[in-house]
Each structure stands twice: as C-alpha cells, then as structure tokens.
Design a protein around this nucleic acid. Structure first.
Lengths: 339, 339
DNA sequence: GCCAATAAAGTAATCGTTTTCATTATAGTA
DNA sequence: TACTATAATGAAAACGATTACTTTATTGGC
C-alpha cells in the first residue's frame, strides 16, 4: 500500500505538500495540486488512519459495548448508533460482552488501548470499577438502557418505571386483576424499575400480585421465560393468571409459546404485554401489545451526545430520558365477564 | 494517558526495556522487570495500539461488513464472527452497508485506510469492483452468505439450492401441490439459488408453479412479504395456495401475519416454510418449519478462515460450503384430503 | 586466566502521517 | 523604492510504540 512519501516522490513534491492536498489545509498551487492528485490516483493512495490518528491524537473511533449483539434490542441499538456515527464521520468498534464481567473488562481494556475517542456502553451491571477506568482515562462515556449509580458519565435512559406502570395499568383497565409478572436479571436497574412500576400499578388498583405471580429469572431470555410461563399457566383456571406482563418482548414470546402448548389462545384465554417493541413484536401473531422503547432514538441520542462531549470537554454531564409508549396490538383483550 | 517514555522515566530505565517487559521479548532482569511493572501500574499505562500497529504493520483488526445489522440473520452472524475473533485476539470493526452501494463503497475505503488485516464481507451484490479494491490492496477477504462470481476471495457458503429443494420437497411429501414461492432481491445469488432449488423440486414433482404463484420482491423484508402474501391468499379457496415457501424467515413472518388477518389458521388452512432459522422461528406460534442455515458456524468458519489466510498468505483460496438442514416445526401439516 | 557465549541494558532508526518553522517568491502599499 | 503581507513550498520534529544495533557485564569451558 502506497505511502505519502511515495506519492510525494512520484509527484516530485514534498510530503508536506501532499498532506496539504489531502487535508485541504494551507496553501498549494493549482499546478502542484493537480500533480499530487494524479499521483495519488496512479498509486491508489489511501492515507493511513493509524499514522494520522497517532499524530493528531484522535481516532474518530467510538467503542460500542453491548451485552449481547444477537439480541434484537441490542442489535437494533448498535445499528442505530453505528448509523448515526457514520453520518458524523466516526467509526464504531462494536463489542459484545455476552453479559460476562470478564469480557466486559477485557473489552474496556482494548478500547483504552485503541485510544477510542469515546464509548457508548450498555453495561452488564456487574461492576462499575471498569467504567471508572474509562473516565479516569479521560474517555467520554455515555451509558444507555441500563443505569448505574455513582458514575460520572452521560446517560440515555427511558422511563422504565412509568412505562411498566402504564403497561400494567392497561391490563387493569381491561378488567384484569390476576396478573403475573415475569422479569429477570436482578443486577439490571432497568429491569428492577420495570418490576417496581408494574407492581405499583397493581397495588394502586387493589390487585397486589402474590409472590407466586411474580417470577424473576436470572436471564432475560426466551427459554427461561417459557419455563416460567408454563408453571404459571399450568394451573386450574381459577388460579391461573388472566394476564401476563413480561418485562421484555423476547420473554413475552416465551409466554406465547407456553400458552400455545397448553392450548390457550391469545387474547381470549390470556392477555400478554411485553416491553421494548422489537421488530418481531409486530410480526408475531397476534401482534404483541408492548411498552415501546424508542430504540432507534436511544442509539441516535447516545451517539450524538457522545460526539458533543468529545468535541467540547467542558460540557457538563447530561442525562437524557426518553419516553416509553404503550403500543396496543392484538395480544390483550378485555377480561371475559364469566371469569 | 501515560506513554512508554513516561513509564521508562518513572522506572529509571530505557523505553526499550519497558517494551521488552510489555511484550515479554528479549532479556530483562527480574529486578528491573519488577520496577517496570510497578511503574506501569502506578501510571495506569496502556500501550497505544495505534503506535504499535503503525510500527508492526498489523492491526489485529478485522472489518466486518454486513448489509443490515438490524436483521436477525446478520446480527447473529456478526455476533458469531465477533466472538470468534475475540477468542483469537482480533478486534471487529462492524459496519452496516444498509444494502446501499454507496455506503458499502465508503466503508471499504474506510477499512483500507484503517489498515484492517482482513475483511469478512456479506456483499450487497451491487458490484464487485469495490471487492477488487480490497484484493488489490493485499487485504485477505472472505465473503459469506451471498456469493459473487469472478472475485479471487475465500468463501463461506451454504447449500442454498439443495436446502430450498428439500424445503419444497417437504411440502410435496405432505401432499401439497399448489405452492407459492416468495423470494426477493434479484441481485442476491443466494436468493436466486433458493428460488431455483425450490422451483426445481416442484417441477420434478409435477407441480410447476405458475407465474402468479412466484413473487420476487425488491427487498427481503417483512412488509413486502406481508403484502405479497395478502395478494396470494386473498383468493377463493380453490385458487389459493395451500402452502407458501418464503425464502427467508422474516418473510415467512409476513405470511403468518397475512394469514392471520385473513382468518386462516396455520397449519390447517395453510402450511408455511421459511429459510434461515433465526431465533424467532422457534419463538413464534406455531413454530416455523424452516431450512436452517448454521449461522453461528458460518460466522465462525469465516473468521477462522480469514485468520488463517492472514497468517499465511501463501494459502490457496478456499470455498467452504456448509449444509442447510430442514427443521420441521408446527407450521406445516399434511394437505387436508377434502381440498 | 583467556575467550566465547550469553545476559542485560541502552541508543537510535523506523512506521506514516501532521504540523511547526523557515525560506523564498510575489503582490500590494506607502 | 523599500517594506510588509501573503502565497507557496520544503525540512524536520513530533506522535508512541518496536526492534536492529551497540555496548558492557557475567558466566562457563578449557
């Protein structure tokens, strides 16, 4: 791969002149500019981002660290971030920690070594020490989706509590009272807020969920939720919940699956509400009523906030809270009178 | 962020010694090593990957360029690649071309400038010129999922033709004959092979699909497929297909949706087969019968092949073909006798 | 006790850019 | 005409590592 030196030689000028042409900086006569441009073309010259970054002390690269790239919520988020960054002439180094503390730590180390200009982080929540390593290294950080207390970083969050409250409220208004909650990941603040919001709405309505109607799994995945739903639904009708609020959409799919296996039809025999509004929520039959997070806007806001803070390090830290919104589809229906 | 020079000063040694400690290369006495290590710890030293890459002329970074990061197939693929690379001490620069030729071109340019050691590419198929730019730049490439003729690169493909053949065959064996096909993206070789394979199976069985039973949309997405399925199914029963083979799972979801809107129940009124086996294929109700691609293995094979070719540039080009496999779930059933 | 390995450390060149500084030519101004 | 901006270029010093070369001690074999 040709270097700037070779281009300079080939055009019969100094490297400084080539650099000026490449960066459109300083003075360079039209005749020389022309010669340099043809030389670049002939040698198929691509300036080395490495050398440039080393000299300029900026990399135009952002670390994007999510817990699970193969989960719809996070892949959509990563996509939105990547797309926004591209428009602002930044690159994304996408990393997936697989909910593992070790891998998250390892990746943060790598991002520091790569001298990324900033990091968008959906933390596993296992610890905050590694985030301090970034902050101490002078790297601007914005955390997204999951909040972590006591770290001096920017935040893009959604109204998890209120969203869950309105999801539960929706079921109440449809006449349901025997409502089960399926949550997960005790170390995720977002999940905890959702649980609290939903529980609060039920308490307010005079339908406080007994302990056997609230399950909190270790992982927010299909399989766990499916198993939980089987246990919840495999009871005599008068003890069975008439509605289940799964605190993310993938878990709601687990409920669909369990219901179908037990011969229950949605929404007649069971109403289901999810959280997130991943694409599949619309695809599935019946369409999933869910508390939508504005995933795309979250990614966009995170990327733009980060860039703003990179370009002006005197900016005070920001917390952006985006609204969740209840999207009613076919998976919820009024409680049937005879129950 | 501390530099090697500062560490050297702080430890009272030369930079060469620090470098030797960092890389465990050459000789260094235990006493000095100890001093260097504490200096590194005290200054929170992280070697600059930029400077190292510049000097060593390798970046340990791989470009991963997919058409749509927010599509389940590609996010799972990217995840698998990223995970495999991490295990081999490589980083992934993940890029999403959004099926756009311009963005694909722009990203290839960026990858060249970033001096990535190699590229895994699921091409949009719009052109091959940009791939030649990579090859000419001496960058090892492996293309995955979609094939492109006449480019000297490695390939990881699946048996699209045979897979589609067996998917169609499955429907034939269940007694179906009025079978519609929904495909897309005329510029994707994978899709074309699937179409051919499916059509061939139908022809062999004496059920050649008439033109109005084969639709090829511009994009392989839910919405397009949903619209197509509406048109296919909104006919009198005797002209309506008894089965639809959608050539990817997301499109199969579109069929589910259309069927449900028209009051048809799966699999009694309509059998549906998909292609890919994305996670949602298992989640959805009824479970989607589909031709599974080994997505994870594809990503793994692509990453490992690439690394092998990076580490030994005398290796001949490889084409790896992985087997697709029919996974029968609840969306297909024998043709009811009365039809 | 001498010589050749080997161990241990440092000096300085190098990777490919950008950018400061210096130098010269040219044009504009008093 | 002399002087000062400004235009146009190049030389050379960074940026932060790695590594080829030196140099000096230390050890072991004879």
């Amino acid at each position: 791969m040709a270097t700037i030196k070779e281009v300079a030689q080939h055009a019969g000028v100094s490297v400084a002149t080539v650099s000026r042409v490449v960066n459109k900086s300083g003075y360079v006569s039209v005749s020389l500019e022309e010669r340099v441009r043809t030389a670049m073309r002939e040698l198929n010259y691509k300036p080395s981002a490495l050398a440039r970054s080393l000299r300029r002390q900026v990399t135009q690269t952002i670390g994007v660290l999510v817990p699970q790239l193969d989960q719809p919520f996070f892949s959509t988020l990563a996509f939105a971030i990547e797309k926004t960054l591209f428009g602002q002439d930044y690159r994304a180094l996408v990393c997936s920690s697989e909910e593992s503390r070790e891998k998250e730590d390892a990746y943060i180390d790598i991002l520091l070594r790569q001298r990324v200009d900033g990091v968008v982080l959906a933390p596993t929540g296992h610890n905050t020490e590694n985030i301090h390593r970034l902050v101490d290294g002078g790297v601007p950080v914005v955390i997204v989706d999951r909040n972590l207390p006591h770290v001096p970083v920017n935040r893009v969050l959604t109204t998890n509590y209120q969203g869950a409250w309105s999801g539960a409220r929706h079921l109440i208004e449809l006449g349901h009272c025997r409502i089960a909650l399926i949550g997960s990941a005790p170390h995720s603040e977002a999940m905890n807020h959702r649980l609290e919001g939903a529980r609060q709405a039920l308490i307010e309505a005079g339908c406080p969920p007994p302990d056997d109607m609230v399950v909190v799994n270790t992982l927010p995945e299909f399989e766990h939720s499916y198993q939980s739903a089987r246990r919840l639904l495999d009871r005599p009708p008068e003890k069975r919940p008439t509605a289940i609020f799964a605190l993310n959409d993938v878990m709601a799919m687990g409920v669909y699956h369990a219901a179908s296996e037990l011969g229950l039809t949605l929404p007649d025999d069971l109403s289901v509400v999810g959280f997130d509004d991943i694409p599949a929520a619309r695809y599935i039959v019946p369409g999933l009523t869910t508390v939508a997070q504005p995933i795309y806007q979250m990614g966009e806001a995170a990327a733009l906030t980060l860039i703003r803070h990179i370009q002006d390090d005197s900016l005070p830290l920001e917390t952006i809270e985006l609204e969740t919104r209840l999207v009613v589809r076919g998976s919820t229906a009024p409680m049937e009178p005879h129950r």
